[in-house]
Amino acid sequence: MLAIGIDIGGTKIVGGIVDEQGNMIRSVERATEAEKGKAYLLENLERLTEELLAETSADAIGIGSAGRIDVHEGTVYYATPNLPDWTGVRLKQHMVDRFGIPTAVDNDVNAAGIGEMWLGAGKRYSSVVCLTLGTGVAAAVFVNREIVRGHHWSAGEIGHMILYPKGKRCNCGQWGCMEQYCSGTALFKTYNEICGKHAVSSGKQFFALLQSGDGIARQVLDAFTDDLAIAMVSLCNIYDPEVFIIGGGLIETQSYWWDAMLEKIGRYANEAVRRPVVLPARFKNQAGLLGAAKLAFDELTKQ
């Protein structure tokens, strides 16, 4: 059997044809361009799917989408302004109506976690927190290899755990969320705040400054590793995982911050927590696509 796996993020949509062993047959990518609205994003999703189906057939479609997803209905329960007007979209029904193929939908970070648990760094573990650090911050939480979704499909939304009451305003409406301090976006925004000007506009530019020896960039990264370590110690006390798996766009830059993060976790953790096992995601940014394909295969078993 073959499945289409699709990962809808705030920046890009990635899709692929995947077989039951997790081999990628073909993949395509498009810019999300979410600012153009819901209708455009759905059309973009259809065009990507059509491109994948142009040369082969698929038995099912799996989609990982940003937002809090009602997996039973395949609808977007809630989405932040990163995807305008995405709240309430009946994504599963839309794709079934358009392509006539069984479809499953889940949150994009959950899909990435499922990919890592299926074939990646979490394959041998039972209780895992898969943490994604990228444009935003979120996690997929597994207990006894079962994903924890929560009553309102919001389990794992750790990016909106409040680190600093009355801190920076988050686009979710709260103040002081972890996402405003521990994401790739937070790095360059904090740098600009300290400089008092729009000096950098991407994580790539930020790390270029860091590599050049920029003192402000070093200061920002030090605060980032501090906040990340504190958050992870809190997550240890909440979930008590065997292992953390860290993925997302920032894992590509782990040589700059990984060791400092581990050292600070050891410094802040109590005797019960000690230093948890922390692993990089095996599939990095491809985990969401593979996890979405696994969702599709699992959907076929329900038919």
Score class of each variant (00 low, 15 high):
213 G>H: 06
291 G>M: 05
230 I>E: 14
156 G>W: 04
254 Q>E: 14
152 H>W: 14
43 E>G: 15
81 P>L: 12
283 F>K: 02
110 N>K: 11
97 D>S: 10
175 W>Y: 15
71 V>S: 14
260 A>G: 12
21 Q>L: 15
175 W>P: 15
25 I>A: 12
216 I>C: 08
301 T>C: 11
27 S>Y: 12
162 I>H: 10
148 V>M: 11
126 S>V: 01
293 A>C: 05
45 L>H: 06
174 Q>E: 15
215 G>F: 14
65 S>E: 04
83 L>M: 04
274 R>P: 15
48 L>R: 09
99 F>Q: 06
40 Y>G: 02
178 M>G: 13
78 Y>W: 15
134 G>N: 01
167 G>T: 01
39 A>R: 12
62 G>M: 01
267 R>V: 09
180 Q>E: 15
66 A>I: 02
107 N>F: 08
114 I>F: 03
228 L>A: 10
249 G>C: 03
258 W>N: 03
26 R>C: 11
218 R>C: 07
265 I>Y: 08
27 S>N: 14
191 Y>T: 08
130 C>P: 11
159 G>M: 07
288 G>Y: 01
102 P>E: 02
222 D>I: 06
27 S>P: 00
16 G>C: 05
291 G>F: 09
177 C>H: 06
204 K>Y: 08
145 R>L: 00
121 A>F: 10
221 L>T: 06
285 N>I: 03
280 P>Q: 10
216 I>Q: 09
45 L>A: 02
241 P>W: 00
243 V>D: 08
52 L>D: 07
297 F>M: 04
230 I>N: 13
299 E>Q: 14
160 H>K: 03
1 M>W: 04
104 A>G: 13
128 V>N: 06
260 A>V: 13
195 C>Y: 09
107 N>A: 05
37 G>H: 02
274 R>K: 13
249 G>E: 03
229 A>Y: 09
206 F>P: 11
159 G>F: 08
299 E>R: 14
23 N>C: 11
